[in-house]
Design a protein around this nucleic acid. Structure first.
Length: 743
DNA sequence: GCAGATACTTAGCATTGGTATT
DNA sequence: AATACCAATGCTAAGTATCTGC
């Protein structure tokens, strides 16, 4: 209790220093919510914690058109009636009005890649090359000098050894840097061609199932039953999950049981007809023992395993792509298992089957060494398609969708695409004002389809909602995005908490993450929403004349390469840039700067609704940290007292020795204060991060060049922001970004 | 124009493994 | 050396968007 109070106090103090709330308004950045504050509420049925975004107090309206009077219920095209839903929740859209062909923005439709290349001069290798080379040399020089200088000082052997290790590390780093494929300095391939040469060893298959030892038995109706190999394997999948909540759900159990029975012999199937009579106890116990044993393995045993894994990685984890060795992302075929969908997935518990080489398509160069299938097997197909990036693919049996083996995020293929993504988003900056003006205009359109498109776009832009493709009902959990919102997902409030025209959103989005938000909107949007909801059932689509294909078709007519998801990238990166500018100060110390960075990152995560379950050990670890802070405080008090005493004595008789003591004590106090600050900041940071996930936005939405430039400007080491993997992924950005980069 | 197929990005959770602490 | 902790990594599901064939 006392600790909690103190924690709160610390937090409050910190908040005073630098704004605790995220002010997302202002500038040319999305005039979104002012003061977004994460709040915790109870989540829906799943019992998961969810984050609530407090309703914005005020709305800045710099891209809204104030005059709203004109919009009357001047009805539309006359035939406005909600569409009946088919089984699949897929709508037929009557051949829609020709696009209100439009705006000065309209550009001839062109191939996306081409356009983005032409559009931005910084998206090309030539100019960067020289600068980059020069920079590289400089870095190397500095690194060479450093360890030598330090080494001479050290006297102890161990310290020398540490230095040697450090030097080795630097050397390794340097070597790695030299090996790096600087693809961003090369010419790009012709449209659609992804590689000229591709060679690899095929995917790695999981080991065969090992039958149970004889002393571990499965019981049915109290009697031991020796299962066939296939049935036993699947039984073990279930037994392994017994600790998990999944196995208590009816859907999961039913799906599992149905699929399990398919694996059984006729005899077994006759016998085993009720899952409740199955006793997996011994199987479960065995599994737990194995897990335990694994944990308790000796160092040597662990090393053996590690080396074996290393060997697999060496053999299957890399490929040759255009003369360069590239790391493969997911070279291991997914092992068989029980399907674990997210949320209330209708297919949870079904058996995800073992993939055989006969199921796998290999893609590689015609003139490469074709991968050899495991002994006694053959590939489904070997093809040589240089317009795709995958090395192998197979069809998964749950949804019937395709799975791919692709390269690691640090590869050229992924990096180039990523770079391009941010360039498209940056291009949106040049026309976003016109697009916003356009959809404000479209809110008044006589055609219902266009109005719906305008409102949807408004949501996507303002709230960073996802596009919302249609999904087949019964195949997946019931989740929605913007275009697939249903009437039941929003509530309109004429006034709410002092705001007018408030829309309350409450729906499950991707991964069944709840989106809950109360947003004041313009009168015009509000009236449109009322109109869209007229004469509809709760389960009817809000935008019955719109789907993602139509929306994206419209968007690509406004700017080549523009799709709904570009707005998320654009608004995320803009928010980061603007928040960094607002929150961070060059005169702050390193710790404060990093807190600011995290807060800017957090603002984006809140915007994009990136949530996580609070870590299981959260409360405990917070308490631990708090305790540490307390003890440090005591230390500080003590150090201060000693300093005071020392000063007193020094004053009494000014002795050089005593003065030295004063200095020493001063330093101790200072160090203590620094450490205390660091811990307090850490506590604040962690608390604010309790159920917000920063990594998704960092990895997928934030132009790395913003962060690189910020680090350079603020003189913060980049590895405080990006770990090794992230630095590898963003190598292109790290290499090319100058101090003056602006998204 | 549409449905299904295809290819690729985005997502959160589980496990691992390295480091600090005892 | 054992343990605790948390960051990094691995995994694979779930999205977006485009392509293809009628």
């Amino acid at each position: 209790m006392a600790q909690e109070d103190k924690a709160k106090k610390v937090k409050a103090e910190k908040a005073k220093e630098s704004a605790l709330t995220y002010d997302l308004s202002g500038g040319d950045v999305r005039p979104n919510v002012k003061k977004v504050k994460a709040k915790i509420t109870e989540k829906s049925q799943k019992g998961k914690m969810q984050k609530k975004v407090k309703s914005p107090k005020k709305e800045s309206t710099d891209f809204e058109i104030a005059d709203d009077k004109r919009i009357k219920e001047e009805a539309n095209d006359g035939d406005f009636m909600p569409e009946k839903k088919g089984k699949k929740r897929k709508r037929k859209l009557e051949s829609v009005e020709g696009p209100s062909s439009s705006t000065a923005l309209s550009l001839p439709k062109k191939k996306k890649k081409k356009a983005s290349q032409e559009g931005d001069e910084s998206f090309g290798p030539e100019k960067r090359k020289k600068k980059a080379e020069a920079k590289n040399k400089k870095v190397k020089k500095e690194e060479e000098e450093h360890p030598v200088a330090v080494k001479t000082k050290k006297t102890k052997k161990t310290k020398e050894e540490i230095e040697a290790a450090r030097a080795l590390k630097i050397k390794k780093k340097e070597e790695e840097e030299q090996q790096r494929w600087r693809w961003w300095e090369e010419e790009k391939y012709a449209d659609g061609i992804k590689w000229k040469f591709l060679e690899h060893n095929g995917p790695y298959f999981p080991p065969e199932y090992q039958p149970l030892p004889d002393n571990v038995k499965f019981y049915y109706d109290g009697k031991p039953v020796k299962l066939s190999l296939a049935a036993e394997e699947v039984a073990l999948f279930f037994a392994q999950m017994l600790d998990h909540e999944y196995t208590t759900k009816d859907v999961f159990r039913d799906n599992f049981f149905a699929d399990w029975r398919k694996e059984m012999t006729l005899e077994e199937r006759m016998l085993i007809t009720d899952l409740n009579k199955c006793d997996f106890g011994e199987l479960h116990a065995m599994h737990r023992e194995r897990v335990e044993a694994r944990k308790n393995m000796s160092k040597e045993e662990k090393l053996v395993i590690k080396e074996a894994n290393q060997k697999i990685l060496e053999e299957y984890g890399y490929c040759m792509l255009d003369k360069h060795r590239e790391r493969i992302g997911n070279f291991k075929i997914e092992p068989p298992a029980l399907f674990r969908g997210r949320g209330e997935h209708p297919k949870q518990g079904m058996l995800k089957k073992r993939i055989q080489p006969e199921d796998v398509i290999i893609n590689c160069s015609r003139d490469s060494r074709i991968p050899v299938p495991p002994a006694g097997h053959s590939w489904k197909e070997v093809r040589h398609d240089d317009t795709v990036t995958w090395l192998a693919s197979w069809t998964e049996n749950i949804q019937g969708s395709c799975k791919y083996v692709m390269l690691n995020a640090n590869s050229k293929l992924k990096g180039e695409k990523d770079w391009e993504k941010y360039e498209v988003a940056r291009k949106l900056k040049t026309c976003v004002d016109a697009i916003r003006a356009q959809y404000q205009q479209d809110l008044k359109s006589k055609q219902m389809g266009i109005r719906q498109r305008a409102v949807a776009l408004y949501f996507i832009d303002k709230l960073a909602l996802r596009a919302g493709n249609e999904k087949e009902e019964g195949e997946t959990a019931d989740t929605v995005g913007c275009c697939s919102l249903r009437v039941e997902h929003i509530t309109l409030h004429d006034t709410l908490g002092g705001d007018k025209c408030v829309v309350e959103f409450d729906f499950l989005g991707k991964d069944c993450i709840r989106y809950y938000n109360k947003v004041p909107v313009s009168k015009r949007v509000f009236k449109n929403l009322k109109l869209f909801m007229q004469n509809k059932q709760e389960t009817d689509d809000l935008f019955d004349r719109l789907n993602t294909a139509l929306l994206n078709k419209h968007l690509s007519s406004l700017m080549p390469g523009l799709t709904a998801k570009v707005f998320r990238t654009y608004n995320a990166s803009m928010t980061l840039q603007q928040q960094l500018k607002e929150l961070s100060n060059p005169s702050d110390n390193q710790v404060e700067k990093l807190l600011s960075y995290n807060r800017a990152n957090r603002a984006v995560a809140v915007l994009c609704n990136h949530q996580r379950a609070p870590p299981k050990t959260f409360e405990q670890s917070m308490a631990n940290l708090q305790a540490k802070i307390e003890s440090r405080k005591e230390q500080l008090a003590l150090a201060k007292k000693e300093l005071k005493q020392a000063k007193k004595e020094a004053k009494a008789n000014s002795d050089n020795k005593l003065l030295a003591v004063v200095e020493k004590k001063k330093k101790a106090v200072q160090r203590c204060e620094e450490q205390l600050l660091r811990m307090e900041v850490q506590a604040t940071d962690r608390e604010e991060n309790k159920q917000i996930a920063l990594s998704t936005s960092k990895l997928n939405y934030l132009d790395p060049r913003i962060s690189v430039a910020w680090c350079k400007n603020m003189e913060v080491s980049l590895d405080k922001i990006y770990n090794k993997t992230q630095r590898d992924k963003f190598a292109w950005a790290i290499d090319m970004t100058e101090l003056d980069f602006l998204f």
